[in-house]
C-alpha cells in the first residue's frame, strides 16, 4: 500500500528498468516527461481524447495521460524515443516526411506509436479505411489527415509483411 505522499514506482521504460518518484495524482505522462525527461510524448487534452500522449504499455497502445503513475508498477512502457530502432517506425517517419504529413509535429509521436502498434498486429498492409479507423483516437489539427493516411498506407505497404513476427521486438 502506498501513502499519500510521493512514492517510488518501479517500471521499465524503453527497455531500461527505472525507479521514478510519483505523487499520488501524477500520471504516467507526468512521469515520462518530468521524471524521465522523455518529452517525445506530448501533453494535449490530458483527458484521453487527443492521442498526443500515445505510448505502448505492456505492448498495447495506451494513453499515458490516463494511466495513474502509482498504478504503473511493474509495467513495461515504450515511448516514441524507444522506437528509434523499430523498422515500422523508421519507414513511417520517412513516408510521413515525404508526404508532408508532419506540420506542427505535435501529434506526430502519438501517431507513429499508434501506427507502429497497428503494423505489428496486422499481417497485411492496412488500407486507408483501416488506418483512418485506427487513428480515430489521434487528433491532428494541421493536415486534415489526408497526407497522414497516405503516408501510413505507403509505409504499411513497405513494412508490413510476412516477416512481421520476426521483426517485432
Amino acid at each position: 500500500m502506498t501513502g499519500g505522499g510521493v512514492a517510488p514506482v518501479d517500471l521499465t521504460v524503453n527497455g531500461e528498468p527505472l525507479t521514478l518518484l510519483a505523487g499520488p495524482g501524477a500520471t504516467l505522462l507526468d512521469l515520462l516527461r518530468s521524471r524521465a525527461q522523455l518529452t517525445g510524448s506530448k501533453q494535449g487534452c490530458n483527458s484521453g481524447v487527443c492521442g498526443v500522449c500515445t505510448v505502448l504499455v505492456d505492448g498495447k497502445t495506451a494513453r499515458a495521460c490516463l494511466m495513474l503513475a502509482a498504478d504503473c508498477a511493474g509495467r513495461t512502457v515504450v515511448t516514441i524515443e524507444g522506437l528509434d530502432d523499430d523498422p515500422h517506425a523508421a519507414v513511417l517517419g520517412e513516408e510521413m516526411a515525404k508526404a508532408g504529413a508532419v506540420q506542427c509535429g505535435y501529434c506526430t509521436p502519438g501517431i507513429v506509436v499508434a501506427l507502429t502498434d497497428l503494423f505489428r498486429r496486422t499481417a497485411v498492409p492496412p488500407d486507408a479505411a483501416a488506418v483512418r479507423h485506427w487513428l480515430g483516437g489521434n487528433i491532428c489539427r494541421c493536415t486534415g489527415y489526408v497526407s497522414i493516411v497516405e503516408a501510413a498506407v505507403r509505409a504499411g505497404q513497405r513494412s508490413v509483411g510476412a516477416d512481421i513476427e520476426a521483426r517485432a521486438p
Binding site: G48, G51, V57, K60, T61, A62, R63, A114, D117, G137
Partner: peptide, 9 residues
C-alpha cells in the same frame, strides 16, 4: 467504445 488505446485498458 472510443478508440483502441481506451479499449485496451
Amino acid at each position: 467504445v472510443a478508440h483502441p488505446a481506451i479499449r485496451n485498458f
